[in-house]
Simulated scan of single mutants.
Amino acid sequence: MAAKPRYKELADELREEILSGTYKADAFPTESDLCKRYAVSRFTVREALRSLQTEGLISRKRGSGTSIQPAAARGGALHQPLSNVAEILQYARNTRAVFDPLGEGPLPRNIAEQLGLVAGGRWSRFQGLRTRADSTEPLAHTVAYVHESLRDIATKISPGEDTIFKQIERLAKINFVKVTQDIQAIAASADVAKALGIPKRAPTLRILRCYHDAADRILEISASHHPGNRFAYSMHIDIEG
């Protein structure tokens, strides 16, 4: 696997410091300070800061330097890139989730049709809310479906212990090699709205993730609904020459 570009690593470190409150709003380091502190080029620093600006975490003005955007200006959202498995795990570490098993049930028709799968079956289901460590306000309502071939493994899953897919890997001794994401803006159903504390049919961002093993079997599916004002999705695309 290719190493993450240095500017992305720097952006990750600075993002964590910003979200943890390390810097005061008007006391963010200058480009020169960051170059010296991290022993990187000015280009690397600028690319990292550009990423954070795109995420809405900082504001940059010529002649005024860099300042941290207040939470109110960010809409109270969790700004988190989710472009690879490592960043999904980082998202899980930066937040907390409390899940409950729902027993076995069918894969819903609307999800199956979107993914090109067969609805029904006896999938093991888990449901819960994800929050930030410093807040009880839900960031997402998630329902996870574990394939019926892993029925015995599903009974051993403790969703509060680790991400479900990492537990499946450990318990079933398999490796997930690919995660696909389908992102769609949809209105909150009555159940989702109640769980998130938002009005019915309020806008949400639904992230539908499928976890594939080496044989390209989808062994877990998760459907997460994020309130529109509590989550911002960002990604980085490297242009290959």
Rank of each mutant, 00 (worst) to 15 (best):
K178A: 06
L19W: 06
A25T: 12
A215E: 14
K194G: 10
K166A: 13
I111H: 00
L52M: 03
S135W: 00
R230Y: 04
A2R: 11
E113H: 03
Q184P: 05
E9L: 09
A195V: 01
F28D: 03
C210V: 02
L139V: 07
I237K: 08
I157S: 05
A112K: 03
A39V: 02
Q114K: 07
P5F: 13
A144K: 08
A48F: 06
G128I: 04
I183M: 07
A188G: 03
V85C: 04
P159Q: 04
Y233H: 12
E47C: 04
V192E: 10
R6C: 02
V118I: 08
D152Y: 11
E87D: 07
P29T: 01
R93T: 10
V179N: 11
R125D: 09
R74N: 08
I18W: 00
T22L: 06
M1W: 07
R96T: 15
A77K: 07
A172H: 07
T22W: 11
S222V: 07
L150W: 12
Y233F: 13
S222K: 05
A71N: 11
K194S: 15
I221E: 01
D213A: 00
N175M: 06
V98F: 10
P199M: 10
E31Q: 13
E113N: 12
A202E: 12
P227L: 09
A72R: 12
A97W: 10
I186H: 00
H226G: 03
R130L: 06
